[in-house]
Amino acid sequence: MSNLARQLQDQQQQQQMPLTEPKRAKARKFWLTPGEMVLGLTFTTMVGFGAVHMISNQSQIYSVNKDIQEIQSSIKEQGKVNDDLKVQVSELSTYERIKSITDKLGLQFNDKNVKVVQQK
């Protein structure tokens, strides 16, 4: 075969076979570099931790405020009880009542033995 025949044969084979180039695997292009991904993950983790920490602190503050209000209400109730007891003491320590009790017990009034005690 001559060189011309060989060229013709090659041309015919090329015309019969469609031109297909081997497909290359497309390289995936990420819009973030690995370093940026690490920084983003670190930042997201820190924000999440901060949010959980803030919610935990708010919960503790709420609990302490609730305890303070309960203690203040119990202090007010105890103050009312104390005021009632002071009134009761003043009613029970009147001169007429003491005089009537001494008369019932047969005791006699002696001015020299009387001592005045005042409450604060």
Rank of each mutant, 00 (worst) to 15 (best):
E91I: 11
M46A: 09
W31I: 08
Y62H: 10
Q9I: 02
E70S: 15
L41G: 04
S56V: 12
V47S: 14
A27M: 10
L39H: 01
V38S: 08
K104L: 08
Q118A: 08
Q58F: 10
Y62R: 07
L85I: 13
D111M: 04
V114G: 00
K86T: 09
R97A: 04
V81R: 06
L107N: 07
F109Q: 05
Y62D: 09
G50L: 06
L105V: 10
Q78R: 10
G50E: 03
Q7K: 13
F109A: 02
K80D: 14
Q69Y: 02
N110S: 05
D67E: 09
F30M: 00
Q12L: 05
N65W: 05
V52W: 02
I71Q: 03
M37S: 00
Q60P: 02
N65P: 00
V87K: 10
V81S: 03
A27Y: 12
G79M: 11
D10K: 11
M37P: 00
G79K: 08
M17Q: 14
D84L: 15
V52R: 03
V38P: 00
Q58W: 11
K80W: 15
Q78E: 06
L105C: 03
K120D: 15
T102Q: 11
P34C: 04
Q108Y: 12
E36T: 00
M46V: 11
L19F: 09
P34V: 04
P22R: 07
I68T: 04
Q69I: 01
K29Q: 06
K104E: 12
L32S: 03
A25P: 02
Q88W: 11
T45F: 11
S100M: 14
R28Y: 04
D111F: 02
I98L: 08
K80H: 12
D10R: 13
K115L: 08
E91R: 15
W31F: 14
I55D: 15
N57A: 12
R6D: 04
S56R: 12
D103N: 15
W31L: 12
